[in-house]
Design a protein around this nucleic acid. Structure first.
Length: 639
DNA sequence: CTAGGGTTAG
C-alpha cells in the first residue's frame, strides 16, 4: 500500500503515461482501442459484471489508461457485494498507478470498502496516506473504530485529530462516534457539543444518543432526548422502546409502544423484538403469544425469531420454544444457545446436552455463552463428570477460556453435589477474583448441605463484595440464630440497620386472562383478598393431610414487617398460587413470576399443591425456574 | 463516498 501520494511521481512517469494522439498512427490506433476498452470497462462496471470488468481493468493497467472515477466506484461496490478482497486490492493498486491525484471521493469509496470488509489495517494505511481527507474520510474511519469495543479510544482520538485538522464533524460523524464514548461524563461532553452545533434535531443523532444513554443505564437522559421534540421517525421510537426493554422496564416499554401506535406508527421487526424482550422480562406468556402472531409476517427474521424463542424459554413454555426453534429457517449461535440454556433452565438438562451435540454437528461454533448454558445443564442434573469434562476441555475444544460464569456453574455443580471443598478449591483457582454471585452460589450449596462454617465464610465474602445484598444479611443472621450465636445475630442486624439495608418485599405476579395480578407481602389491597385467604386456609388443611408442615426455619428470613409465626402463610407466591387455582381451569398451567428467590416452605407447598390438586405449576424466580408437577420440582430441591 | 434501532449469560 505504498506510493499513493502520486504528487511525488516524477515528471517523466507522468509523460510516459499521458497519451500523445498525434505522434504516430500506431499510437493513434492504440488510443482508439484504449478508448473502446475504457468504454467496455465502464459498461461492465455499470452492469456489475465483476469478472469481465476485472479483465478489462487488467488490460487498462497494461496500457496505462484509466477510466472515470464513477466507474471505479461502481466496481468497488461490486467487490463489496461479492466480498472479494482480492479484486478490491487490485482496483486499489490500479488506482495508485494513476499519474494524477485520485479524487478524494474515490479513495473514500475504497476506504469504505476496506472498512466493510473488516480490513481495518488496510483502511488505516490508506487513510494515513490520503493527501486530502474530507469529512467523509474522517467519518468513515471513526465509524469503523466506533463499531468495535476494542477500538473505541481510537475513534475518540481520531475525532480530536480531525478537529485539530480543521475539519468540522457533521451529523454522520456524531452519530457514529457517540457509541465510542468511555463514560457518562464523556457522553455528556459529546452531547453538549452536539447541541451547540444544533445536530441534536437530526433523527440519526437522536437515536444514537438515546441508544448510548440507554447503554450507560441513563434512562432519564435517554427519555429527555426522546421527549425534546415530536418524533416522526420509527427508528427513534424503536430506540427508546429498546432502551426501556433493555433496562428491564417492561412496563415503560409497553407504554411507549402504545404511544407509538397512537402516533400512527406501525411496529417493525425491531419494535417487535423489543416488545418480546419486555414480555420475557415480565414473564408475560399470553401477551408474548399475541405478539407471536405479528412476528409471523417476518418469519425469516433471525433476530426476531431468537427473541421469540427466548421469550418462550423464559416464560417456561418449552413446547412453544421447541416448535419455534424447529421451524426457524436459519439458526445462529444465539438460537442454539438460547434453546440449550432454555432447556437447562427449565429442568431438561439431558435434552440440553443432546441439543449441544446436534449443535456441534450443525457446524455452528459454540461461544462463551453457549458453554455457560451447557455447564448450567450439567449442574442442574448433577452431572459432575460431564461438567468437569466440558469445563476442562472448553479451551481446547472451542478455544474459549473459562470465565466467571463458567466457574460459577461449576461451583453450583459441585456445591449441589455436596463437594463443597472442591468448589472452594475451584474458587481459589479462578483467574479473576470471585464476585458476589460466585460466593452466593457457594452459599446455596452450604445451605443445602448444612455446612455452617463455610456458609458463614461465603456469606461474609458476599457481603464484602456486595454490601447491599439484603437476602444474605438475613440468611447470615438466620444461620447465627439457628446455631444460637446471639451476639452475631445482633451484630448482623446492626450492620444491616447501619447500612440502611431494607429487604425488598416479596412480590409475585400471575397473568390471568391478559391481566396481571400482583401480590406483595404485607399488602392486602387485592380486591379478592378475603376470598383468597379463605381458600388458602382450606388448601393448607388439605395439604396437611398430605404431610405439609410449615417450615418455620424460613420465617426467620423475614426480619422486616410482620414477624408473626404465621407470616409464611402470606408469602406472595402462595397467594398468587391460590389465586391461580381459583381462576384457571385444571388444564391450564399456573405460571408465577416473583422478585425474590422462592423459600423452602413455599417450594414444598407448591410441590404438594401439584400432587394434591393435580395441577402444573411453574414459578420463575430471579435466577431459576421451578416446574412443579406431581409433587416433584424440576430443580431437584436445590436452588 | 460517511451515520441511527432489535436476539443468548450475568
Amino acid at each position: 500500500m505504498k506510493g499513493i501520494s502520486s504528487k511525488t511521481k516524477s515528471i517523466s512517469t507522468v509523460l510516459k503515461k499521458a497519451p500523445f494522439p498525434s505522434l504516430s498512427p500506431d499510437i493513434n490506433a492504440n488510443a482508439s482501442s484504449s478508448c473502446s476498452l475504457v468504454g467496455e470497462f465502464t459498461k461492465y462496471c455499470y452492469e456489475r459484471d465483476l469478472p469481465r470488468a476485472m479483465r478489462a481493468l487488467d488490460s487498462m493497467q497494461a496500457l496505462g489508461v484509466s477510466a472515470d472515477p464513477v466507474s471505479y466506484c461502481q466496481l468497488i461496490k461490486c467487490c463489496l457485494d461479492r466480498r472479494s478482497i482480492d479484486c478490491g486490492k487490485r482496483i486499489h493498486s490500479h488506482i495508485l498507478s494513476f499519474s494524477y491525484l485520485p479524487q478524494t471521493f474515490l479513495l473514500n469509496t475504497l476506504l469504505n470498502m476496506y472498512v466493510k470488509l473488516n480490513l481495518l489495517g488496510d483502511a488505516r494505511d490508506l487513510f494515513d496516506q490520503m493527501p486530502q481527507k474530507n469529512v467523509v474520510s474522517w467519518t468513515t474511519m471513526i465509524s469503523a473504530y466506533s463499531s468495535s469495543n476494542l477500538t473505541h479510544s481510537k475513534a475518540l482520538h481520531l475525532l480530536l485529530l480531525m478537529l485539530r485538522d480543521g475539519v468540522r464533524p457533521n451529523m454522520f460523524t456524531f452519530s457514529s462516534v457517540l457509541r465510542a464514548c468511555h463514560s457518562l461524563s464523556n457522553l455528556r461532553q459529546l452531547h453538549s457539543a452536539i447541541i451547540k452545533v444544533g445536530f441534536d434535531s437530526d433523527v440519526f443523532v437522536r437515536s444514537a444518543l438515546i441508544d448510548i444513554y440507554s447503554k450507560w443505564g441513563d434512562l432519564q437522559n435517554a427519555l429527555a432526548v426522546f421527549s425534546e421534540m415530536p418524533t416522526q421517525d420509527l427508528v427513534v421510537w424503536n430506540s427508546i422502546i429498546a432502551a426501556f426493554a433493555q433496562n428491564s422496564d417492561g412496563d415503560g416499554a409497553f407504554n411507549l409502544f402504545k404511544k407509538m401506535k397512537q402516533s400512527g406508527f406501525f411496529a417493525d421487526q425491531a419494535t417487535l423484538t423489543s416488545i418480546l424482550r419486555a414480555c420475557t422480562g415480565l414473564a408475560l406468556l399470553e401477551l408474548g403469544r399475541q405478539i407471536h402472531v405479528h412476528v409471523l409476517k417476518y418469519d425469516r427474521d433471525l433476530i426476531l425469531n431468537n427473541a421469540l424463542l427466548d421469550m418462550y424459554c423464559k416464560c417456561g413454555s418449552l413446547e412453544d420454544a421447541n416448535s419455534v426453534f424447529n421451524r426457524m429457517s436459519e439458526k445462529d449461535v444465539i438460537s442454539w444457545s438460547s434453546m440449550i440454556a432454555g432447556l437447562a433452565q427449565n429442568g431438561y438438562s439431558r435434552q440440553a446436552l443432546k441439543l449441544f451435540e446436534s449443535m456441534k454437528v450443525s457446524g455452528i461454533k459454540p461461544n462463551y455463552i453457549t458453554i455457560v448454558g451447557v455447564l448450567f445443564a450439567c449442574s442442574h442434573a448433577g452431572l459432575v463428570k460431564d461438567g468437569w469434562y466440558y469445563f476442562r476441555s472448553m479451551k481446547e475444544l472451542f478455544g474459549i477460556d473459562p470465565g466467571r460464569e463458567h466457574y460459577g456453574c461449576m461451583v453450583d455443580l459441585l456445591g449441589r453435589a455436596g463437594k463443597l471443598d472442591e468448589a472452594v478449591g475451584l474458587i481459589s483457582e479462578m483467574g479473576c477474583e470471585a464476585d458476589a454471585v460466585t460466593w452466593r452460589t457457594l452459599l446455596a450449596g452450604c445451605k443445602v448441605h448444612r455446612n455452617v462454617d463455610l456458609a458463614i465464610h461465603a456469606a461474609k465474602e458476599v457481603l464484602r463484595l456486595d454490601a447491599q445484598d439484603a437476602g444474605t444479611y438475613v440468611l447470615l443472621s438466620n444461620i447465627y440464630a439457628n446455631t444460637r450465636r446471639w451476639n452475631d445475630v445482633v451484630e448482623t442486624r446492626r450492620m444491616m440497620k447501619d447500612r440502611g439495608i431494607r429487604k425488598e418485599p416479596g412480590c409475585s405476579w400471575i397473568e390471568i386472562e391478559k391481566q396481571i395480578h400482583a401480590f406483595i407481602l404485607g399488602d392486602s389491597s387485592h380486591p379478592q383478598m378475603n376470598d383468597i385467604n379463605m381458600q388458602l386456609k382450606h388448601l393448607i388443611e388439605r395439604l396437611s393431610g398430605a404431610g405439609y408442615v410449615a417450615d418455620t426455619n424460613f420465617v426467620l428470613q423475614d426480619l422486616e414487617g410482620e414477624q408473626r409465626e404465621d407470616s409464611l402463610q402470606y408469602h406472595s407466591e402462595k397467594l398468587a398460587l391460590v389465586f391461580g387455582l381459583m381462576k384457571l381451569s385444571r388444564e391450564q398451567t399456573i405460571r408465577i413470576r416473583k422478585n425474590l428467590r422462592i423459600c423452602g416452605d413455599c417450594h414444598l407447598f407448591a410441590k404438594l399443591v401439584t400432587k394434591v390438586e393435580r395441577r402444573i405449576v411453574v414459578i420463575r424466580d430471579p435466577i431459576r425456574y421451578h416446574h412443579f408437577s406431581d409433587g416433584v420440582c424440576s430443580c431437584g430441591d436445590y436452588w
